[in-house]
Amino acid sequence: MGKDKTLNANGTDFRQNGGGQAGGGMNGHSSFQGNSHLHRQASRQCSSELYDLSCKVMLIGDSGVGKTCLLVRFKDGTFLSGSFISTVGIDFRNKVVEVDGSKVKLQIWDTAGQERFRSITHAYYRDAHALLLLYDVTNKNSFDNIRAWLAEINEYAQEDVVIMLLGNKCDVAGERQLRREDGEKLAKEYGVAFMETSAKTGMNVELAFMAVARDLKMKKTRKPDEPQFNVAEYVDQEKTTSQCCSS
């Protein structure tokens, strides 16, 4: 069994006195008293870096689908191996990326997938500009729960939030329970972008975040007479195929 643990941006454990509370009141109940503290902490990160616009991206999905690993792969280019450690509540990282000459700061929020932390996650939906919704291609249950996650998004998130569905862990070919076509069909049904990713190999991880950054940048800068950016079409054009992710 892994241990629940939340780390701040510097890798510091938020838990205090072994009491299971984190972030000044993040205890899994109906409210998260550490909201403002974490938001202030996130806004201070990258304050020394210049950027043209800032966007909030949330990683959501069941516990164990690889949200933290995906974030670490994108932020640091490394893979978290070893014992599984579940995120408690909310964690975040910042990364500034360049899109067509503009610097976009992605403030990426990593959320706990366990049901007992769901109310904490809800509090962050309304501020998110983009949501990366993950399932594990080796875990059919995590895929079956995607509709419930999409229902929550519909209830709590902004109407124009960017949504991308990611089938993670596609490198584990021998344990695959879901075909790529399953994810593509569901994404088409809900009108969202889709791709398969691997936090271990890095496949499509950069593309997922950069597609979101490009979409958000275009939304902020698009003139009325310019066509809207279609993130799903962009992903289809840009994503690569790999033998590790074959159906």
Rank of each mutant, 00 (worst) to 15 (best):
P227N: 14
V205M: 10
R222W: 06
R222Q: 12
P227I: 14
P224E: 11
D215A: 15
A199W: 06
K200A: 03
T221P: 01
P224V: 11
L207V: 08
V212I: 06
T221Q: 15
L216Y: 04
M218N: 12
G202S: 06
L207P: 00
R214Y: 04
M218S: 12
A199Q: 04
V205N: 07
P224C: 10
A208P: 01
G202Y: 07
K220G: 03
P224R: 13
M210K: 13
F209N: 09
P224M: 12
N204L: 11
N204R: 13
G202A: 06
N204K: 13
K219C: 00
P224F: 14
K217R: 12
A211K: 09
N204M: 10
V205P: 01
M210G: 05
M203V: 03
Q228E: 02
K217F: 08
A211N: 03
V212K: 10
A211Q: 06
K217P: 01
M203D: 02
K217S: 11
A211I: 02
P224A: 13
A211G: 05
K217V: 04
K200T: 00
L216W: 04
P227A: 13
A213R: 10
L216P: 00
M203A: 11
M210N: 11
A213D: 02
M203T: 03
N204G: 09
R214W: 03
K219V: 00
K220T: 05
D225E: 15
M218H: 15
T221H: 12
V205T: 05
V205Q: 07
N204S: 10
Q228D: 00
K219W: 03
K223L: 13
L207E: 07
A211M: 08
N204I: 07
Q228L: 08
Q228V: 01
F209C: 06
K200R: 10
K219Y: 00
A213E: 03
P227T: 12
K217L: 12
K223Y: 09
E206M: 10
T201I: 04
D215R: 12
G202W: 06
E226T: 13
L207N: 09
N204C: 09
V212N: 07
M218Q: 14
K200G: 01
F209T: 01
A199H: 05
A199V: 01
M218W: 09
A199P: 02
D215I: 02
G202M: 07
V205S: 09
G202L: 06
K200P: 00
K223P: 00
A208L: 06
K200E: 01
K200Q: 02
K200V: 00
T221G: 09
G202D: 02
A199K: 08
G202K: 09
E226Y: 14
G202F: 04
G202C: 05
M210E: 08
L216C: 04
E226P: 02
D215H: 12
E206H: 11
R222T: 02
T221R: 15
L216R: 08
E206F: 07
M218R: 14
Q228I: 01
F209P: 01
M210Q: 11
M218V: 04
G202P: 00
P224I: 12
A208H: 07
A208F: 06
R222F: 03
K220D: 00
L216I: 02
V212W: 07
K223E: 06
T221Y: 13
E226K: 13
A208V: 02
T221W: 11
F209I: 02
E206D: 13
R222G: 03
M203K: 12
A199F: 06
N204V: 05
L216H: 03
A213C: 07
E206R: 10
L207G: 07
E226Q: 15
L216F: 07
M210V: 03
